[in-house]
């Protein structure tokens, strides 16, 4: 069980690191939001499931699942609100020059 949990946590850590690299590398707000959403969906899922597996069978698992459901409901809302505010205040999305 511990090996499975370590595998999940390492996979989650991979996605978190990739998202952090993306937040630094990508060119504008709209693309960076994609990187943050990568963290929010898969990174958090893998990390929290890994921690729940390490915890074993207990009522803490239910709480971890509740936090996960909360994250999955609220993160799209926050990302959408931010992006809509950015679009409405007149920011133009970055385009590749060749197109």
């Amino acid at each position: 069980m511990d090996i499975l949990s370590v595998l999940f946590i390492l996979a989650g850590l991979f996605f978190l690191i990739v998202a952090a690299i993306g937040v630094i590398r990508l060119p504008d707000v709209f693309s960076r939001a994609h990187a943050v959403s990568l963290t929010d969906s898969l990174g958090a899922f893998l990390m929290l499931v890994g921690l729940a597996l390490h915890e074993g069978l207990s009522k803490n698992n239910l709480k971890i699942i509740a936090v996960l459901a909360l994250l999955y409901i609220q993160n799209p809302v926050i990302t959408h609100a931010t992006i809509r505010a950015a679009l409405r205040s007149g920011l133009k999305p970055w385009r590749r020059e060749s197109s």
Binding site: H34, S37, S41, H80, R84, L87, G90
Partner: peptide, 21 residues
């Protein structure tokens, strides 16, 4: 809209009757 935003790589920016830039 929630599914689109949850999937990395696509984000819903506006819905329908809102101000379109």
């Amino acid at each position: 809209g929630n599914s689109i935003t949850l999937t990395p790589g696509t984000i819903t920016a506006e819905i329908d009757h809102d101000v379109v830039p």
